[in-house]
Design a protein around this nucleic acid. Sequence first.
DNA 1: TTAGATGCAAATAGTTTGCATTTGT
DNA 2: ACAAATGCAAACTATTTGCATCTAA
Lengths: 146, 146
Amino acid sequence: MSNPISNRAQRLRDAGYKLTNARLTILSILESHGGHMTSAEVLEQVEHTAPEIGRASVFRALDLFTRLSLIRPTYINDSSTPTYVMLPGGHHHHIICTNCDRIIEFDECHLERLEHELEHRFDVQLTGHLLEFYGLCTNCNAEQPD
Amino acid sequence: MSNPISNRAQRLRDAGYKLTNARLTILSILESHGGHMTSAEVLEQVEHTAPEIGRASVFRALDLFTRLSLIRPTYINDSSTPTYVMLPGGHHHHIICTNCDRIIEFDECHLERLEHELEHRFDVQLTGHLLEFYGLCTNCNAEQPD
DNA sequence: TTAGATGCAAATAGTTTGCATTTGT
DNA sequence: ACAAATGCAAACTATTTGCATCTAA
């Protein structure tokens, strides 16, 4: 009640969820890590910094955060493990090299106008978006003889 | 050698991959199904229409198609199974309701300019993109008292 | 002809479940 | 006080692997 609550924690509370130790710890791990984290990386960090938190709680928290659009799972490296992307300010954008899986992040997307238009057209309330471009990075492009 | 080869099959061949029965069958299942298919749905279809094709080949084909940007795995329903999205013309766009998982597809994105700009800025060769908006659909928005 | 792709079945690994206990509000 | 969330460990399920065989080019 005395220490400051992060924006995201506030959103959890506002949505009616309890600010438990497990949730706050996992949120903090995601926030301090920045951009992308696989579920395996989150599990590993939890294991290191708060081994009392169970595996199941990690998955439950990741699911909850996803429902709240705080993060979004996406496929990057191999095909069977999700990488969770933070959606600060509700959005995130990157380029994925489909050959070497390198990620290039970029900021601007100019999608505000489209977002508003879609909200009106489909009568939805949008909270975030993810924009992914796929292709070959400089290195992989050079390697491909075509 | 006599029957017509689809655009996508041609892209497989051009990239140096063999046009095997397994790959063509799976491609055709994806194409005839249209927009979205989970891996489980693909497996089920294969089981019905071509039971001689092994599970492993399905996953191998889906991985290959992903590397070629013919499809893209994304998280929609539950968190543990990918939904593959066709990328006809290289792109796809939709809105996901984070409450009921309803998907609303839409066409325009006006991202061509950004795509070209990114190609120059990062010296990459882009082959496709996926744009996802997250939020609440009409029904779920109405239900939420806020 | 032959490198690449397949099918099979077993092994693996990631995720979920059920339930008694704990905790935030 | 009590509904909600947790931690545990077992159960599950999707995916991958290794290898002998087959096939597209």
